[in-house]
Simulated scan of single mutants.
Amino acid sequence: MSRGVSIIEARIADTADGWRLDRALADAVPTMSRERLKALISSGQVTGPEGLARDPARKAPGGAVFSVAIPEPEPAHNIAQDIALTVVFEDEHLIVIDKQAGLVVHPAAGNLDGTLVNALLHHCAGQLSGIGGVARPGIVHRIDKDTSGLMLAAKTDRAHEGLARQFKSHSIDRRYKAIVSGQLKTSEGTVNANLGRSSTNRKKMAVVREDQGKHAITHWRKLHQLRDASLVECRLETGRTHQVRVHMASIGHPLVGDPVYGSTRPQHRQLLATLGFQRQALHAAHLGFIHPVKSHALAFDSEIPADMQELFDTLVV
């Protein structure tokens, strides 16, 4: 049985004139990833003023309109699993989860099940956004496996599209609480530094030159002075991979317990071992956005989990 196809019209912005076609279309259609559009172009699903466009690298003319044919989502191959979730809010359009540390978001090599996707497939059976190529939960942002806190997923395509627009415009209010090493000399500050893949380790992110990577801004403020550490709130103006972890490390205050971007101080090493604390001390504590369908403001807060609270209590001066 053949799958249906939906057609969307995408106008290339004047400011995107001369960009690669896949990049320009991703700018014009924020609900679709560049990789997804690249695959659709290569498979002959995109038509422009000059006919079929099969080269993702061709230059896109500003103002041109392209038709993108999107096949209906294929059935998900992920297994629905009855994994306990802390649901903060849910309606017919979206769901907000308070994710526990250690829970992987998407299945991947080495983590094919036991993920948030598997849990949502069970919890939201039959009610998931199909945007993205397969019928899987419409997770519009991620947090790291070992970061705890608030996450948002779309249950309908309309909600997914609306939330994607808010994430692209950086209007989502996301605030993290982190315990960082060292004593911050000022009460607040801003890190404005582009992020990209590390040139020495492609699995890591790093601060890169202004003409490289992606624009990234983190606003931080000190909440409590601890013993050779500080509790800070980090508000994300942008949302890049590992942004808080890399930005705080770049100013000499890596997250306590961070195995990738931090070097554990001798005075903390024994404490972390005693507490059994084996992750970066980072928690997604606040999430605010406009409901993508009903248009009213929503805001949610999450208290830091027990393991991070125990670490905080032990470090109190």
Rank of each mutant, 00 (worst) to 15 (best):
Q225T: 10
L275M: 07
A249V: 04
V244G: 15
D157N: 15
V180W: 05
H291G: 13
Q183N: 13
A249R: 04
D173E: 12
A281M: 12
G276D: 12
G239W: 13
P292N: 09
V244F: 09
D228F: 04
A154V: 12
R265M: 11
A249M: 08
G189K: 00
D173Y: 00
R227C: 05
R174M: 08
L236R: 05
Q243I: 13
A193H: 01
T186A: 13
T190S: 10
G262F: 00
G162S: 07
V256Y: 02
K168D: 10
S169V: 13
S171A: 13
P292I: 06
R245Y: 15
K222T: 07
K155D: 11
F289Y: 12
A273F: 01
Y261H: 02
F277G: 03
L223W: 04
S181H: 04
K177R: 14
A249D: 03
Y261G: 03
E233W: 06
Y261M: 01
V180M: 04
F167I: 02
M248G: 09
G196I: 08
R269V: 05
R227W: 11
A285T: 08
F277N: 05
Q280N: 14
G239Y: 06
K214H: 03
L272S: 01
R197W: 00
V232A: 10
R245F: 14
Q243S: 11
R265F: 01
K204F: 13
T274Q: 05
R202K: 05
E233Y: 05
R265G: 02
T264M: 11
A178E: 09
H268S: 01
P254D: 02
T238R: 09
S263F: 02
L163A: 01
E237P: 04
N194M: 04
P259E: 05
D211Q: 06
R174F: 00
L287H: 13
A249W: 07
M248Q: 11
R174K: 15
